[in-house]
Design a protein around this nucleic acid. Structure first.
Lengths: 354, 354
DNA sequence: TTGTATGCGTTATCAG
DNA sequence: CTGATAACGCATACAA
């Protein structure tokens, strides 16, 4: 037995009115007599009437819901972002539909197709590590569909974007490592084409260069699946450790890579920063209580979600086509915990060099 | 300029056919000639036609989306659960709409009202710490609306439920503390009425009793907002520490309380388990790398999400009303890290055996 | 002030 | 094999 939904028709029938009268009464239209209004409203209340949002959507050609696609919900950075998104959406009467790409392009496109075609009014997305073909998104955008990118953005599509100051965050973190005495600083990152990878590696490289350290490409490793596959991080670390000159520190350019590295180093019995320096982007909980304490670059995830959603709603609700788009860049936070000074004792001895 | 959606009507007009013919051709109906089918299909492909899911929903009286209400997305346990939910939903062509109660009853009800009334086909929910009035959910359930509870369930509503073996998890953890030498074991938990609180405290108490330790109610603290407000956990710890006889260990009965306690103890300069024992439910990342290493009771969050979703879909898609409901109880995992033996010496000194 | 008719996009029923 | 029509629930332009 299906739960029978109460409709305007039911009210109309029960009260001997027409559906339009009921509809107008419910919407408190000025052209309905106070008595009728009262009658309708009270009866609606009594039988617990709620308008069918789907019928409304069909009529108004809007669903009052927004889609969110991220690689993984169970990643602190993204779940914090979604928290911010939900927060703004809730305040504005929008639902949030989430989908995960799991760093798969195919899945991303399927989710996109599923969500689009009018079941959502707009999209907030951080593209997957695998995504290099943006034609689907581009088409969507050209049709006038509201899209806001965050975190992993797409340069070639001109719309609102929200990112952290990746360049600066990476720069500062690398400088911090340099100041702590490290010289052979490796980088473990996502695929090279990803916006965050480019921005963060640029900051990393600039910091090295500005301090007279030559950029060494063999010290830069890319994880094609963004650390979704543990073994690829292991592989990256392994490769770094089998170099003729081992790196004395690692800069990890994404949440999953940072914690991944940490686990692997720990498993190898290495202490941070005792045996090897480590700093990375991370929004993971409890990093401040880690053993060893971990210094991180933290993104304002919640705020990023809020900002992205506000921009999206602006796009959705604007009457005329928006042509002026903005890219919001939010500051990262460099959290230094414990001493990151490089140990100068035997163990790692003079790796130095420069 | 709004992105004009392609409809069946457009295809019909362009091809000089009726909408019904087009509709049938698209659905590959047997009563359409191969040529017409081919014509329609090719044209549809060409202009990138996609059926409007909202119109479909209206017609079929189903939205192919499920609602999820949890207190907080950015909580590892819940984000892992949502991961599992999304996983199954995706495989079955369902969308996932998430909403957060933020442990507020008001918000929970508002979200419920918003989601229900036919914009979702079913609901997966873990109620807020504030919720004591289940009438809204009960009404919904009586109307035949598919609901699956997980984690924080509602006993008085008879439907599918998915929980971890809270009793056993708590029992084992408490036994572990006892075996490690602790005797005055405090408990910090959510509000007393919450299902998980009852189950976990029951396990905790049974463990004490079974080992000849009297249950001391002054050692049991309740956090009304489930640790959403940091100060309430602080207050609980403070009260425990101002007791004439300080507890020598704490059992924290929820994710947020476990990490909350840990932070507070750390801030007080106490080491775990050196100065005070601590074990709690937790699905937070990196607990194994903490300083001090933290032993936890881990719930199979992802699996819980999967199971809950499968049950919900079963409910949604069953032709006749379901009357036989089941409660799935999944095993927790007790993860012992480092030595949890109680220190018997003065300061911290020799950290003892094993 | 209220009722009638129409349309949002789709499919099902009934004619042809 | 194909087309016209009604219906899903609602809102609104147009009548009355």
């Amino acid at each position: 037995m299906k739960f029978e939904a109460v409709t305007i028709k039911d009210i109309a029938k029960a009260l001997g009115l027409s559906t339009s009268t009921v509809s107008r009464a419910l919407r408190d239209s000025y052209e309905i007599s106070p008595e009728t209004k009262k009658l309708v409203l009270e009866y609606a209340e009594k039988i617990n009437y709620h308008p069918n949002p789907i019928a409304l959507s069909l009529k108004e050609r809007r669903s009052r819901s927004i889609g969110v696609i991220v690689c993984e919900i169970a990643n602190s950075f993204f779940s914090q972002t979604i928290n911010g998104i939900e927060s703004i959406a809730y305040n504005n009467g929008y639902n949030v539909i989430i989908a995960q790409s799991r760093e798969s392009f195919e899945r991303e496109v399927l989710n996109l197709q599923n969500l689009t075609s009018r079941s959502i009014d707009g999209l907030i997305i951080s593209v997957s590590t695998e995504t290099t073909d943006f034609s689907y998104l581009k088409e969507l955008h050209q049709k006038g569909f509201p899209i806001v990118f965050f975190d992993r953005i797409v340069d070639e599509i001109d719309t609102h974007k929200v990112i952290a100051d990746n360049y600066k965050g990476a720069y500062e973190a690398t400088v911090h490592l340099i100041n702590a005495g490290y010289r052979r600083i490796a980088a473990i990152s996502n695929p090279a084409l990803l916006s965050i990878t480019r921005e963060r590696l640029a900051g990393y490289k600039a910091a090295l260069t500005d301090h007279g350290i030559e950029v060494n490409d063999s010290l830069i490793k890319y994880c094609q699946h963004g650390g979704m596959i543990v073994s690829e991080v292991e592989e990256a670390v392994k490769e770094l450790f089998s170099l003729p000159q081992r790196p004395d520190a690692i800069f990890a350019s994404a949440d999953k890579l940072t914690t991944g590295c940490l686990r692997i180093l720990k498993a190898r019995g290495l202490s941070v920063p005792g045996d090897i320096g480590l700093i990375g982007f991370s929004n993971t909980d409890l990093t401040e209580l880690l053993d060893p304490p971990l210094s991180i670059i933290k993104q304002p995830a919640f705020e990023m979600g809020e900002v992205a959603t506000n921009l999206l709603l602006q796009l959705i609700e604007s009457k005329r086509p928006v042509t002026q788009f903005e890219t919001k860049v939010l500051s990262t936070e460099l959290l230094i915990r414990g001493s990151t000074k490089k140990k100068t004792t035997k163990k790692v001895s003079e790796s130095v060099g420069q």
